[in-house]
């Protein structure tokens, strides 16, 4: 409780900067990023990003393509580590712990922060094995029955169980695009993460599948902290409680979603929302 109180206090401090209205969400802070920069070789991709991400809410990153929103998302679970020549500066804290602390194990971090990618990427294995993959490598199940339960409940949470319960042993690549993406969500859930990062999860899907995923995100919000990158402002408006606008590697504006869309402070944000840049 003390820790939480501390967080709230911290949030209140940032409120005074008037730049940060996230206190309005009345949520404790889960992730706080300060002055995050990213270089790919000689090229700088992010310039001093500072943002707080609230617990059990959906935060969306919007902005024109190439603005750095995905790059920042990939900093949160250190996926940039896998790219040769990428350097990350500044601090990102999860529950007050610096995730770029050399003593921190990236494996453990990624178990706590799951990720869903732009293009559905089920492994070329059965549906069951896809979901069981995470629990297996992390040793989360003590027995086969345990594992079965994790798989079933993850598929349920991802709203996919009813559709695939009779063909758990068929390859995951045989599902439709929307089903594949929900399978990937189930796969991420199975590890029991606290935060789920979603990198334009609907960009490869048709409107109906998109609607199903959006509904799912809204349900998952109850139990998970969700960060979603999207190029669709409507989507950001529909699913997120907090929105951050990125442009040319800089965080231009952030705040409660309604405020951003109805009352943007910055001209660039206005222009983007009105469709003048993008």
């Amino acid at each position: 409780m003390d820790m939480l109180a501390g967080k709230v206090k911290l949030t209140q401090q940032s409120v005074t900067s008037a730049m940060n209205p996230s206190a309005a969400l009345d949520r404790p802070i889960r992730i706080e990023a300060r002055d995050v920069t990213v270089h790919y070789g000689a090229k700088q991709a992010l310039f001093g990003i500072s943002i707080d991400i609230p617990d059990r809410a959906v935060t969306s990153f919007i902005g024109p393509s190439g603005c750095g929103k995905s790059t920042f998302l990939r900093c949160i679970n250190r996926m940039n580590d896998t790219i040769e020549g990428a350097r990350v500066g500044g601090t990102i804290k999860l529950d007050g712990e610096d995730i770029y602390d050399p003593a921190l194990d990236v494996v453990e971090l990624r178990a706590r922060i799951g990720m869903v990618f732009q293009k559905p990427n089920p492994f070329p294995k059965s549906i069951y094995e896809n979901v069981a993959y995470g629990p297996r490598i992390h040793g989360l199940a003590r027995s086969k029955a345990d594992l079965d339960e994790i798989v079933v409940s993850s598929l349920r949470k991802a709203g996919l169980f009813e559709e695939v319960k009779d063909r758990l042993n068929e390859p995951g690549t045989g599902l439709s695009g929307g089903q594949q993406q929900r399978l990937c969500i189930a796969r991420a859930i199975a590890v029991g993460p606290e935060v789920i990062l979603m990198d334009e999860p609907c960009s490869a899907l048709d409107p109906i599948a998109t609607a199903i995923i959006e509904e799912l995100i809204d349900e998952l919000r109850e139990n998970y902290t969700i960060v979603i990158v999207t190029h669709s402002m409507q989507q950001a408006a529909r699913v997120s409680q907090k929105t951050a606008f990125f442009h040319l590697g800089k965080l231009i504006e952030e705040g409660v979603t309604e405020d951003i869309f109805t009352n943007p402070v910055h001209k660039q944000t206005q222009d983007y929302i009105m469709g003048r840049i993008g």
Binding site: D105, V107, E108, A111, R112, H138, G139, L140, V191, G192
Partner: peptide, 9 residues
């Protein structure tokens, strides 16, 4: 979960 993950690390 964290405990389990750590034990296997």
């Amino acid at each position: 979960r964290t405990r389990l993950v750590r034990s296997g690390l």
